[in-house]
Nucleic acid binder design. Structure first.
Lengths: 356, 356
DNA sequence: TTGTAAGCGTTATCAT
DNA sequence: ATGATAACGCTTACAA
């Protein structure tokens, strides 16, 4: 995509007709004062007499005046816009976006959302945000290659949520301790009495390596190093199906399976159920992300929350600190995840299946 | 909220430092031509020599120039922005937003998303979009009172998705035939052999009345008017719980329940399961919306699709037709819903529970 | 306290 | 084919 076009559609042309909204000049005229004074009054700036203040406010109200943000911002040469890229299919990212919105508003910033879809990849989504003259961009679940990220970070402050900070030049990162989160799950399962705990990982994603490592370390800490079993999974239900099928084929299926995320866990549960195994009776299953799905009573999945409100707040802070010059170098904020115990995990049954 | 402030945060002030992006003037200077010519070249407008075209493009590339949308739009006095309000927790609305994005892009429009959250109600969400100078606004799942909608519609073209067009003045509406959709469900269930079919409705929402009516009419068409049973429900899992509990207390529980939406259906399934009833073995349950949740293999819920892509396309067309003056009066587009049969519905079992 | 006027970066009109 | 130049609506020195 050329960087010089502002849109891929037809060239911009004037709008057919429609009445144009009132300008500050018309308000000034109606109130019988100068535009400067109107500006002062409407911005709430000091230095206007009560009489004129009232007069201006009345005139504005009467005309249905609304400040033209475009014009103000052009003059000020800043927008107070924070760009956010998100995949609107992810409930987790949706919640993050909501929280970012709130946190930004608190600090006087507006957010501009740009969708990552089949039709608009992450790179284009950021380009869109640049077109809106966002002062900083927060990317949720970013998968862009490092080189591209370093490139973007040269144009404006960039904050990544949920990605490790490796080879990322001047990019800020906010994430939760995936390593620790997965360990929390293993500890919970061992405390219930499980020893044969398998992990269905997330495949290639860098975040997957973190959780896998957390699982391995926790298993070793409980002297279960010999029982470590990692199955290749992924982030979808389908991946869970595949992995569960593999587990069922094994000589001695585990009594508990911790999955890379909730969707994957759902696939596992489904396949186990179809094979006649009850969850958690015959096998405990856990997810990750504490998504809305995990919270459904019909699913009731033990999971790990990444604390979206905190993640969001940290991301906004990182973006704005950088923007306003409070930041020294690139930051890497790591938050503690929280285990949420629900009904999909329980002690192993006495009669372990397939046990000799 | 005052209409005159452009943000509730602190007043806008200049940005500390950060290098300012190159302007068209700098490109012109670098290329040794006028700004007018640069504008012509970068917009792809005709009327520039090949030599100068190349020169300008090279200069722009070299300086890393990116057109300032704000400035362009200020001059053109139009934005080609379509505003969209959405609740990012709704998978259905998320999918709609994606499709609207695609449809709008096709026509050369960009969408601006405004979140409806606990902290920002629908009214404020629209105000935000007005601040961005959107030329038209599409509201997803709008609950605003009619008076407010008529008011907004005076400011700009307004399109509502998924709401009936009553008392709405100059507002366009795009929706699916809820009446018909619910009837499709009843027909499906009768075809399976069900006669005792209950409906758990959506409570107060206007859309709920439509579906309820569709259920009633379809029951009567199949001579099941005497068996009509409507339970007050809602749009959440919890509502489904309550309704199912009520059904279980009745003398003769139904052999099938069609719910207002997927979430509600989930609650019903959950409560039935806890009471020892199997779905669909002992009781079939259906939802509405064909959300991602319904599609999960572990849920596998028979549901009704509102065809988000079509809904989105129609909404965008309505918005733009109005904008570009192709529209005559307010429109009411009604699309046909589609039944999606899955595993939560099956023929009634031979031994009907509680049958005398 | 109030008004005048110079920009912000772009596009479009009208000369040349 | 190209270049001055006047808007677009707003903010803000600076002047009164």
């Amino acid at each position: 995509m050329s960087r010089h076009t502002r849109t891929d559609g037809p060239p911009l042309t004037e709008l057919p007709a429609r009445q144009k909204p009132p300008t500050i000049r018309e308000v000034a005229h109606a109130a019988g004062v100068s535009t400067a004074l109107v500006s002062i009054v409407l911005r709430g700036a000091p230095g206007a007499s009560e009489t004129n203040r009232a007069r201006v406010l009345a005139a504005a109200e009467q005309l249905g005046y609304r400040a033209n943000r475009t014009a103000s911002l052009m003059k000020l040469r800043r927008t107070r816009h924070l760009g956010v890229t998100l995949n609107v299919r992810s409930a987790f990212q949706g919640e993050l976006a909501e929280q970012i919105h709130a946190a930004a508003a608190q600090l006087g910033y507006q957010i501009v959302l740009s969708l990552v879809t089949a039709a608009q990849d992450e790179s284009r989504a950021v380009e869109t945000l640049l077109g809106f003259r966002c002062e900083s961009v927060i990317m949720l679940g970013c998968q862009l290659p490092e080189a591209r990220l370093r490139e973007l970070a040269r144009e404006l402050p960039l904050v990544l949520v949920g990605r490790r900070r490796v080879n990322l030049g001047n990019v800020d990162v906010v994430r939760s301790a995936d390593h620790h989160g997965q360990a929390l799950v293993v500890e919970h399962l061992t405390r219930l009495g499980h020893r044969d705990i398998a992990h269905v990982d997330g495949g290639q994603q860098p975040i997957s390596a973190q959780r896998r490592q957390g699982y391995r370390a926790a298993m070793r800490r409980h002297d279960l190093g010999a029982r470590i079993r990692v199955i290749t999974g992924g982030d979808s239900e389908r991946d869970g199906h595949r992995a569960a099928a593999e587990l069922l084929r094994s000589q001695q299926p585990p009594t508990a399976v911790c999955a890379f995320n909730d969707h994957c866990a759902l696939g596992i549960i489904d396949t186990l159920a179809k094979a006649g195994l009850r969850v958690p009776g015959d096998c405990s299953v856990t997810g990750y992300d504490n998504s809305l799905i995990a919270q459904l009573a019909a699913i009731d999945l033990t999971s790990v929350s990444q604390e979206p409100p905190l993640l969001a707040q940290s991301a906004v802070r990182a973006a704005i600190d950088r923007l306003e010059g409070h930041a020294s170098g690139p930051t890497d904020t790591v938050l503690e995840p929280r285990l949420v115990i629900r009904g999909s995990s329980s002690p192993p049954s006495r009669r372990l299946p397939h046990r000799p």
